[in-house]
Amino acid sequence: MAEAATIGDGRAAGWKKLRRRLAPWAPLLVLLALCIAIALVNGRFVSLRNFARIADAASIPLVLGLGVTFVILMGSIDLSMEGVVAFAAIILCLLVANGANANDFGLLGALAVLVIGAAMGFANGIVHVGLQIPSFMVTLGMWFVGIGIGNAILGGIQVRVNDPLIRALALEQFLGLKFQVWLALGALAVAWVVQEHTRLGRYIFAIGGGEDLARLSGIRTGLVRIATFTMAGVFYALAGIMAAAQQGSAFALIGGGRLFTAITAVVVGGTALWGGQGGVLNTLIGVLIVVVLANGMVLMGVSPYVQQIVQGLLIIAAVALSVDRMRAKLVK
């Protein structure tokens, strides 16, 4: 009896070890398997043009995902991105050459939008830390505050972007890829440097791993939290600029549905919702999984609405698989 139990335990331990070793690679394996499966069903998947299309579709979700990755790494969440995207896109359209007023601030306008994004993220952070309110509630409020103010400024109309520089993001190409893809890759590089080579990056992981420990070891966790939400706001504002460029205009619902895709991507990429695990490269893989899946479904003629259903199930599956059941005793 005892012997059988030992063997069983040994096997379970071996399985656990294998699982632990494989876990970091699972998202990449899923992505590869997905690509192979789609390519087998439809040969048109494997073409330079389709890859460029995938890169194009991935660029905005990637930038949004990068921002929220840092927040999730701390074990928090940020639901405000649709509000920031809408507000940023609307302000951008009103600052650069546009169809509604005489402004023509060009790059300066874009810069101002990034500052506005930072300010909205900062507001999230300061309310969250200062009033000690859970992040999902603060950012839920900011989501609607952003959309509301943006809409009020716009008065329900749609403003065209005429600035050639902004439009070029979505229209001009460099080495076969649109400018916005390069911009997204640049954002990825910045995010990676922040994560790997700055104190902020390390503190974020420390907080996600165990906030009380981080605090006891002298990290000013409140400050780090505010900085992280601010940084996330800048990423969302950048995504707002890209969205305005892609649509050629700004309108109230320009951010619609983006939160869902971004969170799916982050979670599917293997960044744990409890914090401390994952990173920006995981988010890259996660975004590609979501976008490739969508691309494959389009190629196979599946209704686009089914994609949303699949994304919802993906979130549940990915979180369920990543739950560390020992640590997650109390799930709220």
Binding site: F260, V267, Y305, V306, Q308, G312, L313, V319
Partner: peptide, 26 residues
């Protein structure tokens, strides 16, 4: 999703909301 799979309620309901919206659109 929340109880059996131990997913935090806000993310479980966000996901189910996405599924419901997808079904409605379809």
């Amino acid at each position: 999703a929340h109880v059996q799979l131990k997913i935090p309620s806000f993310i479980a309901t966000l996901a189910v909301g996405g599924v419901a919206a997808g079904v409605a659109l379809l």
